[in-house]
Amino acid sequence: MNSSTMYPSTLFLTGIPGLETIQHLIAAPFCFMYLFALIGNTVIVTVITSTSSLHEPMFIFLSMLALTDVFLCSSIVPKMLGIFWFNFGEINFDTCLFQMFFIHFFTGVESGILLAMAFDRYVAICNPLRYTSILTTNLIVKAGIMIVMRPAVLLAPCPLLIKRFSLYKTNVISHSYCEHMAVVKIVQADTTINSVYGLFVVFFVSGLDMFLISLSYVMIFRAVFHLPSKETHFKAFNTCTPHICVFIMLYMFGLFSFLSHRYGKNIPSYVHIILSDLYLLLPPTLNPMVYGMKTKQIRDKVVMLIVSQKRFNSMNCP
Rank of each mutant, 00 (worst) to 15 (best):
L167P: 05
L67R: 07
R311D: 15
P228Y: 08
I267N: 10
N171I: 01
L305K: 08
H55M: 01
C245W: 14
L65T: 09
P17M: 11
F93S: 11
L72K: 12
S52Y: 06
L255E: 02
P318F: 02
N2C: 06
N266M: 10
S74W: 05
N266H: 07
V183W: 05
N238T: 05
G18W: 14
F256C: 03
M293P: 08
I274T: 10
L62D: 03
G108K: 08
Q188Y: 05
T295W: 09
S195R: 07
T14Q: 15
F36V: 11
T192G: 02
V123Q: 00
I298M: 04
S276T: 15
G207F: 06
Y131F: 11
G254D: 00
T241P: 02
K185S: 14
I76G: 14
V123T: 05
V205M: 00
L72H: 13
F88E: 11
D300I: 13
I125H: 10
F102A: 09
Y168E: 05
C158E: 02
S9Q: 14
F32P: 04
I60S: 01
E20V: 14
M289C: 14
P17E: 09
A28M: 08
G112L: 04
I147N: 05
N194C: 12
T137L: 00
V153W: 13
F30C: 11
M1V: 05
V109T: 12
S229L: 14
